[in-house]
């Protein structure tokens, strides 16, 4: 479960204080499929960043799975993120010089697992994301859709219960978008909490969306 209480994130410039997010209150339950709707610059990405613990708010509380994550020291915060949160970035953010297999294995390294265990999990994730056939290809040689699926596999490999997607379909063609949606549905059925930040209308008609949050100028619109 994710709870955001009185969250504020602002940046002080010489002239003024710019609020990326203001007075955010939000609760997301386990297994929900949440859509964050809004134009670019509205604060969706900032919100995702705060949920992932990758940034710290100026005030407010973020509680994930009962753990107030803001005050966690890096050692603990990183471990938490590693184990509970999977992220699919807008531009995939793969390590171009490594293979698909190694990219997917990357989040597992801090976990101190054996090579055997890592191999098992990576293969499982590649299977779910339907990208096993490209396991030994270099990430730089992949098409957009394939990179997307690699990113998905990577987000799953730690068995994280929360998946965050930042504009996942922005760089995909129609066919790949369909594929992506199918995979998302599979993940939803696995009872993962999924939060998608997007302004792609293709998401609007999905029947398994449990909540739509509109963000306008850093605030949640009613």
């Amino acid at each position: 479960m994710i709870e955001l209480i009185e969250l504020n994130r602002y940046y002080d410039t010489q002239r003024e204080r710019f609020y990326a997010l203001k007075d955010i209150n939000l609760t997301i339950n386990r297994g929900e499929f949440v859509l964050l709707n809004g134009v670019s610059g509205s604060g969706k990405t900032t919100l995702l960043t705060l949920i992932a613990g990758m940034d710290k708010p100026n005030s407010g509380i973020v509680i994930i799975e009962g753990e107030p994550i803001i005050k966690l020291p890096d050692q603990h915060l990183s471990k938490f993120r590693n184990q509970h949160i999977g992220i699919i970035f807008q531009h995939y953010n793969l390590l171009e010089n490594l293979s698909v297999y190694d990219n997917v294995a990357t989040p597992l390294i801090p976990m101190r697992l054996s090579l055997k265990e890592i191999d098992k999990r990576v293969k499982e994730s590649l299977e779910i994301a339907n990208i096993s056939h490209k396991a030994s290809s270099l990430a730089s040689s992949l098409s957009g859709g394939e990179k997307q699926r690699t990113a998905i596999a990577r987000a799953l490999v730690t068995k994280a219960s929360i998946i965050l997607c930042d504009e996942p379909t922005a760089n995909l063609d129609k066919a790949n978008r369909e594929i992506f949606l199918k995979i998302l549905e599979r993940l939803h059925k696995l009872n993962k909490t999924i939060i998608v930040s997007t302004h792609d209308p293709i998401f609007n008609d999905l029947d398994y969306i449990t909540k739509i949050v509109h963000i306008v100028d850093g605030k949640i619109a009613k």
């Binding site: 710290k56 708010p57 100026n58 005030s59 005050k71 020291p73 890096d74």
Partner: peptide, 17 residues
């Protein structure tokens, strides 16, 4: 100041490293 929320405090943690 461990209780503080300021960017300064977060930077301090990095400096500790």
């Amino acid at each position: 100041d461990f209780q503080s929320y300021t960017p300064v405090q977060y930077r301090l943690e990095k400096y500790a490293y």
